[in-house]
Simulated scan of single mutants.
Amino acid sequence: MTEYDYIIIGGGASGLLLADALGSDPFFKEKRIALFEKQHQKENDRTWCFWESGSGPFDALIHKKWNVIRFRGPNFERNIPMEAYSYKMLRGMDFYEEYYRRLQLYPNIEVRYEAVESLEESETAAIVTTGMGSYSAPRVLSSVMFRRPKSLMHPYPVLKQHFLGWFIRTEEAVFDQGTATFMDFSVPQMGNTRFMYILPFSPTEALVEYTLFSETLLEDKEYEDALKSYISKDLTDKGYEVLETEQGSIPMTVNDFTQANSAHITHIGIAGGWAKPSTGYTFWNTRKQIPKLVHALKKGDSPRLKQPFKFWHYDRLLLDVLTRENASGNQVFSMMFRSLNPELILKFLNEETTLAEDFQIINASPKGMFIRAFWKALVKSPY
């Protein structure tokens, strides 16, 4: 059995960011580290978006950024120039290429292109098994949850942010390439929170994505039909071609994912509960969690990274509202975007606001829904 000091399972955003952080830190210079990834070459299988003030560590890789965002709700629409933030898009393909290149510069990190079949635990280590052999380490950091505790999805509700996106090219110029559509609720809600999300790259090319917050997924045809209808009705009837697609589902819950961790296994990324519960955004949260994780590893701790207390409660109430009244999402977000500075909303969603700023957000929200959710949370009403 081959032994390492640390094993990372998964070469996605969380695994690569963690491997780079360990490789570039002198503290881990003498540690043997392995990254397991089943695919040797990764295509542009996803995009990550986040908003950021000023310049940042990923700027050299950014495919496109926007300083104006568009929100479209029932009976109103806003194009909002942003001063403090830019909305940035990072393509998976560009990210993978850069970070795998970086890992080659660290002599203590080995990338093994092997699919992990199982992850077990002994008294002294975690054991990774692939079709090519077995490997052990006192600490395994996994972006895959091989065994999900039965209690993981309890006691709080679980929604999914699920989506299908098409990268399209239109025959005529239809996009304002300087404006990203953050949410367009003009699509039929059909008892759920449903919206379109558009990232334009040129007057004729954009990512158009159909997104839902709901408990269950749709059949593929339902996503496709919604995209076709929206494109022909709201964008162009002159024709278009689909260049690429992306599809995904992200859990939206405040349940404690760290209960799946153990003495020798720590989950990272979505498997670690790093997705922002109320929005599904994961990349920015991952960037914030990596330094905390590295700090814990240096101290020899078994890390339990959790969401800040007050934002956990805010997200819990919003998810309670969306679970009980799933079609109300457009009303919640519309009231906020109609009456608030959108940059304050983005700051809030990035979990960077003060209590005074939190109060502005709360005051602009539909109070009846949140009071009902708060009251039912107090009496611990079952779902």
Rank of each mutant, 00 (worst) to 15 (best):
S232A: 10
S232I: 10
K233G: 02
K233V: 09
K233L: 11
T236A: 06
D237F: 13
D237A: 14
K238T: 10
K238V: 07
G239Y: 04
G239A: 04
Y240K: 03
E241T: 14
E241R: 13
V242G: 03
V242S: 02
E244F: 11
T245I: 14
T245K: 13
T245Q: 13
E246L: 14
Q247T: 11
G248V: 07
G248R: 02
S249D: 09
S249G: 11
I250D: 00
I250F: 03
P251T: 05
T253P: 08
T253W: 06
T253C: 11
V254H: 01
V254N: 02
V254E: 01
V254G: 05
N255A: 08
D256Y: 04
F257D: 02
F257Q: 01
T258I: 12
T258V: 09
Q259R: 14
A260E: 00
N261R: 04
S262P: 08
H264M: 08
H264T: 01
I265L: 12
T266K: 10
T266R: 01
H267M: 11
H267E: 03
G269T: 01
I270W: 06
A271S: 12
A271G: 05
G272T: 09
G272Q: 12
G273I: 15
G273N: 08
G273H: 03
G273C: 12
W274S: 03
A275T: 09
A275R: 07
P277H: 04
P277E: 06
G280Y: 06
Y281M: 12
Y281E: 08
T282L: 14
T282G: 00
F283V: 05
F283E: 02
F283C: 09
N285E: 14
N285T: 06
R287W: 14
K288M: 14
K288L: 15
K288N: 09
K288V: 10
Q289V: 15
I290R: 09
I290E: 01
I290T: 04
I290H: 00
P291Y: 00
P291C: 11
K292M: 14
L293C: 00
L293N: 02
H295A: 15
A296R: 10
A296S: 15
L297W: 00
K298R: 15
K298M: 14
G300D: 06
G300C: 11
D301P: 02
D301Y: 10
P303F: 07
R304D: 03
R304A: 13
R304S: 14
